[in-house]
Design a protein around this nucleic acid. Structure first.
Lengths: 347, 347
DNA sequence: TTCTTTTATGGGAGCACTCTAAAACTTATC
DNA sequence: GATAAGTTTTAGAGTGCTCCCATAAAAGAA
């Protein structure tokens, strides 16, 4: 059972190799009947063209890379699933690349580009320390998903799609303030200017300010740069918070995983969520609604974001359209972890 | 900034193209000094060979595909991370392919093989309805990870690595029996003979039998074929169980996600875990230990399994060594969700 | 009928590599 | 100094495909 090539198909059909190529690639200059005949033969013989040979010759490689910091982040793995579906529909193929925390994602993309002849790049998460200048080194169009970068110039060299992190974070913290909380801690990511953690922190500051609450910097806990948003890390940081002796009535963790770790830490100190401390997360991953107590969170429309990201990428690749910046609206889901039993018990 | 090719490097070094190729591929017939010189030039110019061109010519393509039913299954996404690391170390590249529930994974692999010139295939999960005969259609060596298939003939056409599902499941149910439970329900996957769900069900039967407990088929709940092990599904099936009116003192769900869904369902009926019903899971994903109550489960050594799987694959690819069947030992982690307060309150 | 235009097809160069076979250069042996 | 044997290098064929260009056939215009 030898590998079957385009030549074999051509011979079988009694036509030239180029005609078979034409039929497969929806080239206009071909007789519909010939095309039909060729396609039938292809199907009968389960012929699938060799991707390497195609990519070698083609200018447009039909390879899209997805670079992820943490494939096992539930938010990302869910999005990867959607992105692969979308990419598959358009007959492109997806290359997933896990970027280690110590790696520079743009460097990694640069390598992949040489190696795999990419025609498009999607970044899930990540920091882009050098920002625009760094991203501009990539030849293929780039879409940033769920990353910082609210600023967006005309003629940008990349697109971006995400929720408005400042606004969504504001929404959550403002909600906590209205619930009567005054001592609200936050568990966030690195202080890096280009990080989602920074934006969500800004939303936190803004909400406190508008509610006339002074910021207590001792209630602001940072993860280290490049660390995953893990439950373990949430647990540690919450424990530090609890052991600091500061008064805390609510905690906002910038991911659901961190929030769950925090819940567990509170529990392990013999305290109750939400009775003693309310906890809120961010993302809206499955576990948030199944956790006990179910977790108040900002639900990011992951499917929509992932779909839009691939759509934008295709627009840029195929129609050479301009890069764009799209914001999605998150949904504040109020659940058990912030139910205010103390004050509202009379309701 | 034009793309740099092997020709450019050859010219820069003042040597032939084939010599550069030799240097890069650790070919023995080359002067060490020449090689060093060439490697220096390559590094200085950030040259990275084009993968498509390589794969086109090479017999062994250095492409390994990972086919997954459900990339967003936490167990799998974690393993994917480890597998990519291992594959990367050996300078091979990984192609992740999400297999939809309605797709036949072997068909999908067959396509990928033609398309991407695979030199190895790893399956994560999946069913393999046609089993051996079907798998034998693949030319590249295959390793099944976390799949059924305890039987293993000499000269098998594939390797397999997993825990011994029957034994691990037995361990768990036997433990529940010893805790004094008599009415133990199970939430498992399809009845399909080649599924992990079936094996774990066999372990359940065995444990009940050895503990002289009659099986009540009304306590055995099946998911549909191809469905993900989701929390939502666990919730539904547990709700059905609770509404059946059968007496239930413990539930064993064959994945942690299902178990968490079950916990939530019990909670929503106004009952307590473990006081009213004990719950046990399987897998040992992160959330299991952070959930409230923390979840009793069988911890699969995911990292070790993933590493071993890639190792075996490399052995078969490179040394043409025989296929093997490797079992790992799981760890029964007893946690809050099965703590037996009732009987042992005097302890 | 002859010339131009349109439509359909085939030939073959080229993509960036690998690898075989042969060439060029060493060194050893008599 | 000639031959053999080994080492290092190179030219060039081959990989499966795409796409430009040439050609052939059909259609339309003169």
């Amino acid at each position: 059972m030898e590998t079957i090539t385009i030549k074999d198909i051509a011979k079988l059909c009694g036509v030239g190799v180029s005609t078979v190529s034409r039929a497969m690639n929806d080239h206009p200059d071909i007789n519909p009947e010939t095309k039909q005949m060729i396609m039938d033969v292809i199907r009968e013989n389960n012929y699938i063209p060799n991707n390497s040979a195609r990519n070698l010759k083609r200018t447009d490689s039909k390879n899209i890379a997805v670079l992820v910091k943490g494939v096992d982040n539930p938010l990302f793995s869910r999005m990867i699933r959607v992105i692969e579906e979308e990419i598959g529909k358009k007959k492109y193929s997806m290359v997933v690349h896990q970027v280690e925390y110590y790696e520079d994602e743009v460097e990694a993309a640069l390598e992949l580009e040489q190696e795999k002849r990419l025609c498009g790049i999607i970044f899930l998460g990540g920091f882009y320390s050098e920002s625009s200048e760094s991203l501009a080194r990539l030849k293929a169009p780039v879409v940033l998903v769920t990353s910082a970068k609210p600023q967006f110039e005309q003629n940008s060299t990349y697109s971006a799609v995400s929720v408005d992190d400042i606004r969504e974070s504001y929404k959550m913290v403002d909600y906590l303030c209205r619930q009567g909380h005054k001592d609200i801690a936050i568990i966030t990511a690195t202080m890096h200017d280009e990080s989602v953690g920074k934006l969500r922190l800004l939303g936190y500051y803004k909400a406190l300010q508008e509610n006339n609450i002074n910021v207590n910097e001792k209630l602001v806990k940072y993860m280290d740069e490049g660390e995953d948003y893990s439950m373990g890390r949430g647990y540690q940081l919450m424990t530090e918070l609890l052991e600091s002796g500061e008064k805390i009535s609510a905690v906002f963790a910038i991911s659901d995983s961190l929030a769950i770790g925090a819940c567990r830490a509170i529990h392990d100190k013999g305290l109750q969520v939400p009775e003693d401390i309310a906890v809120a997360g961010f993302d809206g991953i499955d576990i948030a609604s199944y956790y006990s107590p179910s977790l108040t969170t900002i639900i990011q429309p992951m499917e929509a974001i992932a779909k839009e990201a691939t759509q934008i990428l295709f627009n840029v690749i195929r129609d050479k359209s301009m890069h764009t910046r799209k914001f999605f609206e998150g949904e504040l889901a109020v659940r058990e972890s912030t139910e205010n039993n103390k004050e509202n018990s009379a309701d």
